[in-house]
Simulated assay, not measured.
Amino acid sequence: MRIVAGRHRGARLEAPAGDATRPTADRARQALFDTLTGGRFDLDLDGATVLDVFAGTGALGLEALSRGAARALFIEQSRPALAALRQNIAHLKAEDRCQVLAIDATRPGPGREAAALVLMDPPYRSGLAWPALARLAEAGWLAPAALVVIELAKDEAYDPPAGFALLDDRRYGAARFLFLAAGQP
């Protein structure tokens, strides 16, 4: 697994042993960021704060940093995933632009920074995406009109909490990306 574009393009990322952590495939990550930054959304990551929830290896947040985001906040609670995440941040020499939070995404506490882009990759079919998103929004982790991307299994049902509008729904292999706008009726 590697960073696919930007400043750290080609940098190798480590993942914990076993199948408890399922990193987003390079091709799916490439398609996701192409959609975000050059396609449907034309999002400018320069100077943005990105929140990577259920971060695992940190591939999504680190990809955003490589493509110009100013800061990345990572929420993860698995010890093996946290070790890999910290190793990946150190490998990219990005410690000054990253904050790793070893907390439960469904009980995050008050927001430390409001993120313009939220990337969530919960375990497939866990049902954790929607309670985590609701709690993060309530606790102030999302900037007004934040763009939220949630990766689910391609056939997994979705039921976003109130205040989020579905903007797009795309499938890439086994992955499904839902693009949501925060602060919507």
Rank of each mutant, 00 (worst) to 15 (best):
M1I: 10
R2N: 10
R2T: 07
I3T: 04
I3F: 08
V4Y: 03
A5W: 09
R7A: 06
R7L: 08
R9L: 06
R9V: 08
R9M: 02
G10A: 03
A11Y: 05
A15R: 12
A15M: 11
P16H: 08
P16K: 12
G18A: 07
D19Q: 14
A20W: 08
T21P: 06
P23N: 06
P23G: 11
T24V: 14
A25V: 02
D26T: 09
R27Y: 00
Q30H: 14
A31S: 12
D34V: 02
D34H: 00
L36W: 10
T37K: 09
F41W: 14
F41D: 07
D42P: 00
D42S: 15
L43A: 01
A48H: 07
T49G: 04
V50W: 08
L51S: 06
D52K: 04
V53Y: 01
V53R: 06
F54A: 06
F54D: 02
G56W: 11
T57H: 11
G58Y: 13
G58K: 09
A59D: 11
L62I: 14
A64S: 04
S66R: 03
R67T: 11
A69P: 11
R71E: 15
R71G: 06
L73Q: 14
E76A: 06
E76S: 09
Q77G: 00
A84N: 13
A84P: 11
L85Y: 13
R86H: 13
Q87F: 00
N88P: 09
A90Y: 02
K93H: 15
K93W: 07
A94V: 08
C98K: 11
Q99S: 15
V100M: 13
A102V: 09
I103R: 15
A105H: 04
R107V: 03
G109P: 08
G111N: 13
G111E: 09
G111P: 05
R112F: 00
E113T: 11
A114F: 00
A115N: 12
A115W: 01
A116I: 01
L117K: 08
L117M: 09
M120H: 08
M120W: 07
D121M: 07
D121V: 01
D121L: 02
Y124W: 14
Y124M: 07
R125D: 15
S126P: 05
S126Q: 06
G127C: 03
G127N: 10
L128Y: 01
W130E: 13
P131Q: 07
A132D: 10
L133K: 03
L133F: 02
R135P: 00
L136R: 13
A137R: 15
E138H: 10
G140K: 11
W141N: 12
A143Y: 05
A143I: 02
A143K: 05
A146Q: 02
L147V: 06
V149T: 13
A153T: 03
K154G: 00
K154Y: 15
D155I: 09
E156N: 10
A157C: 02
A157Y: 03
A157D: 15
A157G: 14
Y158Q: 10
Y158P: 00
D159M: 02
A165N: 06
A165R: 15
D168L: 00
D168F: 05
D169S: 08
R170T: 06
Y172Q: 13
F177P: 07
L178N: 08
F179G: 03
A182G: 08
G183L: 04
P185K: 12
P185V: 10
P185N: 01
